[in-house]
Amino acid sequence: MDPILVPKPEGLFCPAGGFFIDPVRPVARALVTHGHADHARAGHGAVMATAQTLDIMALRYGAEFTQSRQPYDGPVRIGDVTVSFHPAGHVLGSAQIAVTGAQGRIVVSGDYSRVPNPACAPFEPVPCDIFVTEATFGLPVFRHPDPLGEIAKLLASVRAQPDRAHLIGAYALGKAQRVIMLLRQAGYDGPIHIHGALQKLCDYHIAQGVALGDLRPATLERGRKPDFAGAIVLAPPSAFAATWSQRFPDPVICFASGWMQVRARARQRGVELPLLISDHVDWPDLTRTITELDPAQVWVTHGREDAVMRWCSLNGRAAHPLRLIGYEDEAE
């Protein structure tokens, strides 16, 4: 009997259902866990995902990103397997995909997090025989602190340097809205300025009922120089390399990412205020999740597979690295 899922160059393939999960190349039929670009690509024949993930893909790639959108709407039989989607706690619309066949059940978690995030339902542990885990922060040095503590650092810095703009690098889907929500949670109710590249996804969050408060475009208005002193400005990290950032005199460069745990990474990016805010499981949550689910096998994908493999072997767990190519871990 074939295994339920097999790794192929395009991604994880289900022979009994004829679909790929999060394929990195165009395929006839794709199931997509969430809207991040390395998981959700344009050009597939048909895409099944949560309604929110499909909306996000349309926002990013245009309405024609696939020939057939199939919003997930409860467990569904595809070929000889049953497919169900379950919250992953990663970003708006994110899901784990469970595939159940005669051989048992595999859960592909996609990217996941166990820290509460108001934009999405919390991670749902789904009992399974094989658990496919990401390993973005799969090293025991990664232990993410309370994100509100990081926001407190940011607000202290804003208060201490009222004459400088705080320019926060945050990826457009998930991280940017997370930082905004955390700021609101911490009681900051002033305007937050956003780079144009964040506008569509912030609007979409608001439309989906995620309150983000007073957002304003970080643009220069014709005829007068806006005063960004003391302002909080969010932008995708790529904007820091663009001339766009030259409008801010002497900004405090901040970056909201799990990578900020490693000082050399922060320094290499020229970050003055690292904000350790992540959408992924850290090491304690990753290993705790495996222990809780207690699957017969663990498959490890994108990230630090070696360390997760080592932990599994130390804990007497059967594990297998997938070595899938095409998933980036920089974009966190």
Binding site: L139, P140, V141, F142, R143, Q261, V262, R263, A264, R304, D306, A307, R310, W311, L314
Partner: peptide
Amino acid sequence: RVDAELFALSYDFVGDLAETIALI
């Protein structure tokens, strides 16, 4: 306190001994 292989992988990633130990 820490498995030698996990420590080596971590140190390799972090690049600074004091920092690796502090985190791990």
